[in-house]
Design a protein around this nucleic acid. Structure first.
Lengths: 225, 225
DNA sequence: CGATGTTCATGCGGATTTTGGTGGCAGAAG
DNA sequence: CTTCTGCCACCAAAATCCGCATGAACATCG
């Protein structure tokens, strides 16, 4: 597993390398943002650790640029305690997770493992659609600031739709995603699930967002259409 | 500015005293960890220089103990170049900085200056949430000024949650952080741990802060939500 | 030994699924 | 254009299942 550490603090960089190599990663280190970018464009990395504040180019900028260039690995951002963490949250920088300095090596390693495990599912980006907000980091969906209390399956279902608004998802696909491939459930379970989610959306005043497409499946649609 | 040097190597200790005194510090020397501890409990020091490897009690142990006793001065750790050290752990133990032997006297002095500067500014870094206070410098957690007596794992767990309030931490991640990666425990150990922590929180009158999120994990939540 | 940490067995309650019934839509037939 | 018919979405409540909490027993470490 190849990993690039972009960190200007020499000592921290050294420390990181030590721990990561001991954990079996193949580690490269970049001293600043520009260097990190160059390295990424030259070599292939599975994971990236970016310091938030670096000379020449900040971690956010690097992450944003790389995502535009279709970088698909996991990105972990390092921030100092006193910097606004909300920034990480709010900005859709492309980072998947963050860690506040100082941190413990086992938390770092655990988060990295979590990242490589769920490579494609970013943690901290948010997706919104007509007042519905999906916050991956807290596994929460809310409507107009009202958090909606969803069970695991309900969450999986709604977030699936939310990630592809307006697009029809077939019943088959939904079942495979929510229950896993080869799940042994009746077709009706999905109906029941949909009903529950709709009820919960109603309860917080969200309009009729989940549209059923007869014979195909479901989609999230503009309530005023 | 009073400073204590704990170093078993006589020649190095002598050298340090020389340089430090020349730089205007008032210097005491301890020969090993236990002695250092005693001195600190007797006199007040602004700064500490601890050798990593010492007879009777290592620098880490001394630092950890002192932090628990609310020692607030800066701690600088000395390490040999070739020892393969768990640096992060070292810093976690309460040290503020470290220096690899052999070193130049001016680097030593520079780091000491940085340390004492940092002391004067807002130094005690704490994280708080609804009356719960995590004090990183002393590695303690308290509720409404009541210190909570936590075991190592309990502390790890609660501080993990505390560092990301409101955010759901998956059972997997928690286990990896608290027990380490690849720990061989039953899933149930976490349940048990949670129960203990909750009980201790109850005991000091803290409300229901640890929320379980079925199917996901746990999070620290607003008790009035 | 005592403190700390882990497992076991059990019970509860919420989450999930099933059942069975209703209604509406669409295309075919009148 | 209207009616019929079958399929499918939808609903409510009941049944089942599973995750989690719990207390006590057991192990481990200092």
């Amino acid at each position: 597993m190849r990993i690039l550490v972009a960190e200007d603090d020499q000592r921290l960089a050294k420390m990181l390398r030590l721990h990561l190599e001991r954990a079996g990663y193949q580690v490269d280190v970049a001293q600043d943002g520009v260097e990190a970018l160059l390295q990424c464009q030259t070599y292939r990395y599975d994971l990236l650790i970016l310091d938030w504040m670096m000379p020449r180019k900040s971690g956010i900028e690097v992450a944003a640029t790389l995502r535009q260039e279709q970088f698909e690995g996991g990105i972990l951002m390092l921030t100092a305690r006193d910097t606004e963490i909300d920034l990480v949250h709010g900005l859709d920088s492309g980072a998947d997770d963050y860690l506040v300095k100082p941190f413990q090596s086992n938390e770092l390693l655990a988060r990295l493992r979590a990242l490589s495990r769920r490579q494609q599912k970013a943690f901290i980006s948010t997706v919104t659609f007509h007042g519905l907000v999906l916050d991956l980091s807290s596994q929460t969906i809310s409507y107009e600031r009202h958090p909606i209390d969803l069970t695991r399956r309900e969450f999986e279902f709604l977030s699936l739709l939310l990630r592809r608004p307006e697009q029809v998802m077939s019943r088959e696909l939904i079942i495979e995603v929510v229950w896993g491939i080869g799940a042994d459930i009746t077709d009706n379970a999905l109906d029941a699930l949909v009903r529950l989610v709709r009820k919960k959306l109603d309860a917080v005043g969200a309009p009729n967002l989940i549209r059923t497409v007869r014979g195909f499946g479901y989609r999230l649609g503009d309530p005023h259409a």
